[in-house]
Write a protein that binds this DNA or RNA. Structure first.
Lengths: 143, 143
DNA sequence: TAAATCAATTGCAAAATGCAAGCAAAAAAT
DNA sequence: ATTTTTTGCTTGCATTTTGCAATTGATTTA
């Protein structure tokens, strides 16, 4: 994907260079909000990502240190993907998108309950998402 | 740009369909954080957007109700662009990108002071950005 | 060893982006 | 009134990215 990094030091430009394509945040959403962790599960998303794009994005997200891959210890022909701390730190962004779309997309399927939780207990929800994400990773924790 | 809307109702997919390209958020950043409001100013951004892309994105953002255009009353050969309420509602997203990049981009130019303000006085900063944005718009307020 | 499962690559078409040049409308200068 | 300048935008074409269908590779299970 996006080969050309703008590299201006601007945080918005950096974010867009790293996750500013049509698919990366869909994958991250699936991992963070829907507990998905395999290639096959990402492929089955209703948005319909192509196999080559998915492969490319997973590689890219690994290279950027946003996700990690390892073999499933239980089903050894499966590869498990999990969010790193850097990936988990994207949770606020995802939640903001939910709120924004809820208010401005007439066709949204975001639930009122979720939006109220985000607005009233943002910190608690973020903590919960982080814990679930860490549990899936089962990597050495750095904190 | 992005002709194909996924239209699944998912808030993340909606956000990506509307502002998920390489340039839209750069323009919105310039308007929200840097007070820019003309084509020429956007064109001069250090990231170097091409004229046709800029034109296309401004048209698209207008069509999506994120920005509005009008002639400058003072310098009538100028066209002024301003954020709508829908556009101003993207401020939280922008701030989260600043925080994320600050923590994860070794090369970031985001200032520590700004990040601390975002983390300690998010609500106040958002209010301030909204007021400045509204002042630039000088449209009838809806609230 | 053979079959099944899961992940990923390849080839080609379509779409988006980038670049250089030029056009158009309004205002300012002459 | 005509020319010049400013500002915003379009066009043509090359490059890059994305999308789709088919296929390949690697590992596990039978």
């Amino acid at each position: 994907m996006a080969k050309a990094k703008r590299n201006t030091g601007c945080p918005i430009a950096y974010s867009l260079d790293v996750i500013g394509d049509k698919w990366s945040l869909i994958i991250i959403r699936d991992m963070l909000m829907r507990g998905k962790d395999t290639y096959g599960e990402f492929l089955a998303a209703e948005e319909g990502i192509a196999t080559n794009i998915l492969s490319d994005r997973l590689r890219h997200l690994c290279a950027e240190g946003i996700i990690e891959k390892r073999r499933d210890p239980d089903n050894k022909k499966r590869i498990l993907y999990s969010l790193t701390e850097k990936g988990l730190d994207l949770a606020p962004l995802i939640l903001d998108m939910v709120v924004w779309s809820y208010h401005h997309d007439a066709n949204t399927r975001a639930s009122r309950a979720m939006v109220e939780r985000i607005e009233n207990d943002r910190a608690g929800l973020l903590k919960e998402l982080r814990q679930k994400g860490r549990a899936r990773a089962s990597q050495p924790r750095r904190s």
